[in-house]
Design a protein around this nucleic acid. Structure first.
Lengths: 222, 222
DNA sequence: GTTATCTAATCTGTATACAATCAACGTGTT
DNA sequence: AACACGTTGATTGTATACAGATTAGATAAC
């Protein structure tokens, strides 16, 4: 694997999982030494991360990890509304229905596990990732898929902060399962509306979780 | 201005306006000599263009200008539907109404000019660009704005190929004007629906123009 | 005639050295 | 004391050299 890819992956993961929190300033020489690559591939990694919206350049100081605020969260949900309702519609028209029927069963089973604490939550997150994958594959549209992938990156960062409780997870599972059902039935309108509902509720849940965080810390989320 | 920016701009423009048509293979040394920059900034430019979706890397051969097909056009319109309907809705809720009232007047006046041939078409394209700008500003959402900017890049490439006639331009102007009117009135639902209609019609017009091109050339659009 | 392998040549990736730009700080002057 | 200017230090941007990988072509063997 290329050195620039290694640097990109490492920094990407560290930003997503909070090892490099918002506002962290990254110098070129400093990071190239830490990651064991020279400045050239490191700069390539920086540029890609700037393109992803995870870093931004501050002239003279270095690149800085993007700050997440309550504002950011709302903006991302607005974008998701546009992208995911459209994706759900298209998936309902084009998906292999068998895939989504099986996915529905998996959701049905997972709902028993969610009560079981942390390990159940992991199962649910994996299942959600599978759902996202299935949608992207079903829409058969590389441009839409790329846009979805980008927004999911930012959501992953937010989700890490806005940890939620089993009750909320179960709600989310039920909402998602309805979307899956609509797609399996080829019902585009229902799939879109169920997605709208889910995003609305999810936004509320995440905002609530973020507010809980804000009570402890400062204005920023991470 | 930085050498990498110069290289990026130059290549970007050349791809958009067709000087570098689809399928053109670009070598690093070749292009760095032509543009008068060294390989390091040129590679940065290449990477940005790959990120934009205008180039893709073909291992061993170099980077290649992305091919536009009828398929691509449909995919972009599907993405636009998701993004622009949402943008129109949000703009209707948040825009400074005076801005869109003035824009409405400009459309009203431009409609007289469109009959006048090529110069009138230019005015209309400028006005459309102004409309896009106004939407992006009104939504006040950097993530949505970035997604819109990217899709518009690809549309610019397509529009250059799918040159259309004054009658079709006038249709488009009327459709867009209705969107502007809805936003000026703060009517989010109408803005979204008018956008849907406009995109549907625009897709038909562009597809027709693309098909006309295909009769002469090959399978690819450019 | 086809296939396999070796070689040569080009292209990609990385490191490093050099140059230019920018910011912060201190010094001097009004 | 405040402001302007210069100097120093660090940081960013560019060029180039070197190393590794990959492809195409040629030659030879089956």
């Amino acid at each position: 694997m290329r050195a620039s890819d290694r640097a990109y992956r490492k920094l990407f993961d560290e930003i997503i999982d909070g090892a490099l929190p918002s506002g962290t300033v990254l110098g070129e020489v400093e990071q190239s030494e830490r990651l064991g690559v020279s400045r050239t591939p490191l700069r390539e990694a920086f540029n890609r991360l700037v393109g992803d919206g995870l870093l931004h350049a501050e002239p003279g100081r270095g690149v800085v990890v993007t700050t997440l605020t309550a504002e950011t969260v709302s903006e991302l949900y607005e974008l998701r509304e546009g992208l995911e309702e459209q994706a759900a519609r298209l998936a309902a028209q084009r998906a292999d229905r068998e895939v989504f029927k099986k996915l529905w069963e998996e959701f049905e089973q997972s709902k028993n596990l969610i009560d079981g604490g942390d390990i159940g939550a992991m199962v649910f997150y994996d299942l959600n990732a599978k759902f996202d994958e299935a949608i992207s594959a079903a829409v058969q549209n590389p441009y839409l898929a790329a846009a979805l992938k980008n927004v999911r990156t930012h959501m992953a960062r937010i989700r890490r902060i806005a940890r939620t409780n089993p009750k909320r997870l179960l709600e989310a599972a039920n909402e998602t399962q309805l979307i899956v059902e609509a797609i399996a039935d080829g019902d585009a309108a229902l799939a879109a509306h169920a997605t709208h509902v889910h995003l609305h509720k999810s936004h509320s849940r995440v905002s609530a979780a973020v507010r809980e965080q804000l009570e402890n810390t400062n204005q920023e989320v991470a």
